[in-house]
């Protein structure tokens, strides 16, 4: 084997590695230009409401977004660091009424289970309902 052959081998190895590196970099940064079409393949979960958790010095506040919920049907339960919220909508809402196309589904109830992020005294939990949002408040357990 001549020196030229050796250099050719090195050149082709370097080229191959460069292409691999380029591909790795591209896939690593691809999210930067990617629009997140995040709905699961079986469609969005219409009956699972959005939620937010807000922590103050003294309490943990959980906000559950439940538009068109029937206020009289709300169930909120907490045990072993988990929160469970359930309720019926004021009427059955068909998916096409709220802009979903080609989907024969409807919403008649909400159901949500989530972990409470800090230690709270759930026996003192309270909740209120306003403008289609359930606001659950739990006092935090102060660590001594």
């Amino acid at each position: 084997m001549s020196w030229d052959d050796e250099f050719d081998l090195i050149r082709s190895y370097v080229k191959r590695r460069m292409r691999e590196l380029e591909r790795e970099l591209e896939s690593a940064f691809n999210f930067m230009y990617t629009f997140p079409l995040g709905a699961p393949p079986y469609g969005p979960s219409l009956d699972e409401p959005l939620h937010e958790i807000y922590l103050t010095d003294k309490e943990c506040v959980v906000i559950i977004d439940v538009p068109l919920l029937d206020q009289t049907s709300i169930t909120v339960e907490a045990e072993e660091g988990k929160l469970r919220i359930e309720g019926r909508t004021r009427r059955t809402i068909k998916a096409n009424e709220i802009g979903y196309r080609l989907m024969e589904r409807e919403i008649s109830r909400y159901y949500k289970e989530l972990s409470i992020p800090v230690e709270c005294n759930v026996s003192e939990m309270s909740y209120s309902f306003r403008n289609g949002r359930i606001v659950i408040r739990m006092p935090k357990i102060e660590k001594t």
Partner: peptide, 15 residues
């Protein structure tokens, strides 16, 4: 129509 708007925009809010 605020409650309908919220329901309609749930998925885009997640994205």
């Amino acid at each position: 129509e605020a409650e309908y708007i919220r329901l309609r925009n749930k998925e885009i809010m997640k994205q």
